[in-house]
Write a protein that binds this DNA or RNA. Structure first.
Lengths: 206, 206
DNA sequence: ACGCTAACGGACGCCCCCGTCCGTTTGGCT
DNA sequence: AGCCAAACGGACGGGGGCGTCCGTTAGCGT
């Protein structure tokens, strides 16, 4: 059971909560979601019980820890959508999101494997729709290849997640180059051959 | 210590060895290298001790289990190199290798994460050199973008590994589409902007 | 048919992670 | 200053994977 009535945490409890979130952010970013809960606790200087009291499950902890990053994702998408040139906006989205995922290992995992059955993280549906609109405009403008489907973006993000490297720097460099290649692949071109059929990677909500 | 002198296995031992390899192939393919050794043993109908006696380490087991697949990789590369049109050959290599990795989850893991410190698996160096030659020819022919580097191929394979899906079919479909996009990205084009710098993903042997 | 030894596999001890309980500490209010 | 409950954290039991030991089984050569 979780504490119910107080709703006002004691100062030390609040402090611990914050230190736990910091530790979680750091460790998730560096090592992914695989890190043991106790490691996070140790790193935050608290006992395991305290950690579990604040965040009964890793899922909850991760959701809270990544709240900022997910907001950042939404901001990026909004920026892209705001760009008067939809193609440039789409490129920006791809580049920025890839970089974000490259810098934060846990984010990519949380974002895509998405904790199978995670609740709608930070308005995913809204974001998806926004990107879909952006893509349509880029298509209409003749910059985005006409056989593009939204699943291709998921495909690219999943693929980006597959790029792992020892150092974060290498990771980011590689991810940037990958984004460049991806953009080239998506660019409308008179010479391109038809693509193999797309796969349904995510169930598009009705 | 490993058995030394006999060099000729008893019939039942040989039989078990084969069943273990079969089980390993099946499980590695379906679930990746993460499967517990005991699971492989159970699936092969032998005790853990027997498994360990035949293959003292998971590394050894995987190497043996993937011998065929790695040979297949080399064959694909050889086929690609044999094609009179180097660009078509390179495309074939990309498509086939991506598909192979999509069908066999363990292979991708073994191939790239490459058991950090694994011995030269099935003549990796030779294969790498062959592909490098193929790429150079494709570049000279003006079909492959001139700023391509070999690390881009690694990048693509790593990225392909990042594509996961519940069903193998979806996985393969997605991987095929990804390969198509990758090829489009690598195609020489008058309109393409310069790419971000490449990352050193593998230490190229001298 | 018989024995010898290669080969087997159940069982063990080790370690790591998980989630929880309960005795102890300490912040905050009077 | 003193109380009390909120908050803490060490310690526990459970589960799972790993690699190994040793008593038992069964191929194979005579």
């Amino acid at each position: 059971m979780i504490d119910r009535l107080p709703h006002t945490l004691r100062s030390d409890a609040l402090d611990n909560r914050e230190r736990i979130l910091d530790a979680a952010r750091a460790l998730f970013s560096a090592d992914g979601l695989g890190v043991p809960m106790r490691e996070i606790a140790r790193c935050a200087g608290v006992g395991p019980a305290t950690l579990y009291r604040h965040f009964p499950t890793k899922q909850v902890l991760a959701t809270e820890a990544f709240a900022d990053q997910l907001r950042a994702c939404r901001t990026i998408v909004d920026q892209g959508c705001a760009d008067p040139d939809p193609w440039r906006g789409l490129c920006l989205v791809i580049e920025k999101i890839c970089e974000l995922h490259a810098r934060d290992r846990g984010l990519g995992e949380a974002f895509l494997t998405a904790f199978p059955g995670a609740p709608d993280v930070a308005g995913r549906e809204y974001t998806v729709k926004a990107v879909a609109g952006l893509a349509q405009r880029a298509k209409d403008a003749g910059h985005l290849r006409s056989d593009f489907v939204l699943d291709d973006l998921i495909l690219i993000l999943m693929a980006n997640k597959g790029i792992h490297s020892r150092s974060t720097d290498t990771q980011v460099t590689a991810s940037r180059r990958f984004a460049g290649l991806a953009i080239q692949a998506l660019k409308a071109s008179p010479q391109h051959a038809p693509l193999p059929p797309a796969a349904r990677l995510v169930s598009t909500p009705s």
